[in-house]
Every structure is written in structure tokens, then in C-alpha cells.
Design a protein around this nucleic acid. Structure first.
Length: 299
DNA sequence: ATCCGGCCGA
DNA sequence: TCGGCAGGAT
């Protein structure tokens, strides 16, 4: 079965019809399980035909799942694929990561983006060792207390590492539910999606279910205008070129090579020390950069 | 409401 | 050339 043939029909041809699904799922009609089952068949049939073989799916180790989930925040799967195996090879467990110097971690992170995630990951490893006996907690509420982990990441870790039936939305899952249940709506709130997510969740196999939803959502976006555009939570981000964060990234890349003075940093980044200073300050506040004896460096 | 990275497919 | 990405923190 080709990918094309395994792809579900567009909204007007849905089975059961979108209106029927929505009405039934939102009501308390006694026969809604039939329609829940129909939707699950659509998703799982697609998954059986076109499941992605991703490196982080070959292990359910909480550490592996944690690293992958942090890397995947606002980052395409196709990019993470190249970083995840190298990172795991260099830092195979919480102990190794916790005691690794930040500059070594950032060196492997270079090119992945959002460098604060790497720092958060190291902090998480230290907390897991000092407060959880080296074992990542499984409850989403505890996970969400860790730095760099919000509700979505906490719930997905619980689902993928511990196979717990958590509820969470991210862009691929949003796309699936908006595509099927709100094909004509313009501004869909997450509150409208959560009841449907809860009703259709496969509580016996949450891990497989969420993998299936994400694969289907990613594929839908390749064949239709991005349904998540019609989500209220959808935001376009500020341009990167010429922005402070571009300079910020340039500073970190420079310091990755060696410590540098303010003057040499400005020269390397092709800008003035004056414009560099507030950015260096923010980097220090984040803990990504330190200063000692006239030179900036990555700890 | 803003900031935080960097790349790649269309 | 540009949109958008398995979001989080302030």
C-alpha cells in the first residue's frame, strides 16, 4: 500500500462524516463508541501502513525519550534525526550528561538551535541524580517542574517513556483533530480539541496512539494547507535574520571555539562591542556564558 | 505578548 | 524567498 493510498480522504469525503463525528463525540449518545472506533481505525490503519522509523522510537528508556523530546521542541524531525544518535553516543546516561562541561554539550548541540535547551537538559540530569535517585519521574506534574519541560513535553514523556494515557496537544496532533473535526473553522481553541482527544485516546496503548497521531498529522501537513494555522494557539515568530538572537547564536558559536575578549568577539561577529554587550548580559543570565579575567567563555 | 535557532522544502 | 517546526519561560 503506497503512502498516497493509505492517506485518509480529505474532509468532505470523511467517513464517518465530519458533522456526524463531531455531533456524536460531543454528545452523550450511547452509541458513540462506534464512531470513536471508526476514528481510531482511520489513524491506526495509516500508522500500520506508514509509521516512521525514528531513532528515539527504538528505545523506551526515559533518558532517551527525555533527550528526544527536548530536541524536538520547535524543531523538525528531519533535523533531530541527525543529532539524536550522536548526542546519545556521547552522553549515554544521566551521569555522563550531568558531569559533562557545558561547552562539550553545546558543541554537539551546535546547529540544532535554541541552545537554552541544552543547558536545561544538563540541569535536568543533575536534578534527576540529586533528587530522584537517578530515575526520571513518571508523573507529568513532577516532570513539568523540571527546567525546560512544560505541560506538553511532560505529558509526552509520560506517554512515550512510561506508556501512561496522558492528554497533550502539539502541532501534529492539533493538525489531525482540526483536519477531521473542524475542516471549515477558522479559529479553533484547544478547549474544543481536548474533549475529542480525551474521548478517542487509546488508553491501552497510549504510546502507539500518540506516535500514530503525530505521523498522521505530519503527513496531513504535506498534503493540505497546515491545519494548525487555523488554531488559536498558532503564532508566527519574529524574523531571525538581523535579530538579536542571530547575534546571540553567533556569539555562542564563536565561544565554542575558544574564550574571547569583548573586542575580539565584536570582530568575529562583525559588529560593535556596544551592540554586543546587552546580548552577552542575557547569555550570562541564562548561564550559557561566563566572564573571567577579561574573557568570555562557555563554562 | 516576546524572546529564543537554524535549517530546509515548497 | 519564506514559512514553520514533537514549546517553554518571562
Amino acid at each position: 500500500m503506497t503512502l498516497h493510498h493509505s492517506l485518509p480522504h480529505p474532509p468532505p469525503k470523511l467517513f464517518p462524516s465530519t458533522d456526524t463525528l463531531l455531533r456524536i463525540l460531543c454528545s452523550q449518545r450511547p452509541f458513540y463508541p462506534t464512531h470513536v472506533a471508526a476514528f481510531r481505525r482511520i489513524v491506526l490503519r495509516f500508522y500500520r501502513a506508514a509509521a516512521r522509523d525514528l531513532p528515539w522510537r527504538r528505545s523506551h528508556s526515559p533518558y532517551h525519550v527525555l533527550v528526544s523530546e527536548i530536541m524536538l521542541q520547535q524543531t523538525h524531525v528531519n533535523r533531530v534525526i541527525h543529532f539524536f544518535p550522536r548526542f546519545i553516543a556521547a552522553f549515554p546516561d544521566f551521569h555522563t550528561l550531568a558531569r559533562a562541561p557545558l561547552h562539550r554539550i553545546l558543541r554537539l548541540w551546535n546547529g540544532l538551535g535554541y541552545n537554552r535547551r541544552a543547558l536545561a537538559l544538563k540541569h535536568i540530569a543533575q536534578i534527576v541524580l540529586s533528587h530522584y535517585h537517578g530515575n526520571l519521574p513518571s508523573s507529568p506534574s513532577l516532570l513539568a517542574r523540571l527546567p525546560g519541560i512544560g505541560h506538553a513535553t511532560a505529558s509526552s514523556i509520560a506517554a512515550f517513556a512510561f506508556n501512561l494515557p496522558t492528554l497533550f496537544l502539539e502541532t501534529n496532533i492539533r493538525s489531525v483533530f482540526i483536519h477531521y473535526f473542524f475542516p471549515l473553522h477558522k479559529k479553533v481553541h484547544d478547549c474544543q480539541l481536548l474533549p475529542l482527544l480525551k474521548l478517542t485516546l487509546d488508553r491501552k496503548h497510549p504510546r502507539r496512539w500518540y506516535n500514530a497521531l503525530m505521523d498522521l498529522g505530519a503527513t496531513i501537513k504535506n498534503h493540505y494547507p497546515n491545519p494548525s494555522r487555523r488554531s488559536l494557539s498558532y503564532r508566527t515568530q519574529s524574523p531571525f535574520h538581523g535579530s538579536p538572537r542571530q547575534l546571540r547564536a553567533a556569539i555562542l558559536r564563536t565561544l565554542l571555539t575558544s574564550p574571547a575578549s569583548l573586542a575580539s568577539l565584536a570582530k568575529a561577529c562583525n559588529t560593535s562591542p556596544h551592540s554586543l554587550y546587552p546580548i552577552l548580559h542575557s547569555l550570562q543570565l541564562d548561564g550559557l556564558v561566563s566572564f573571567s579575567r577579561g574573557r568570555f567563555f562557555i563554562p
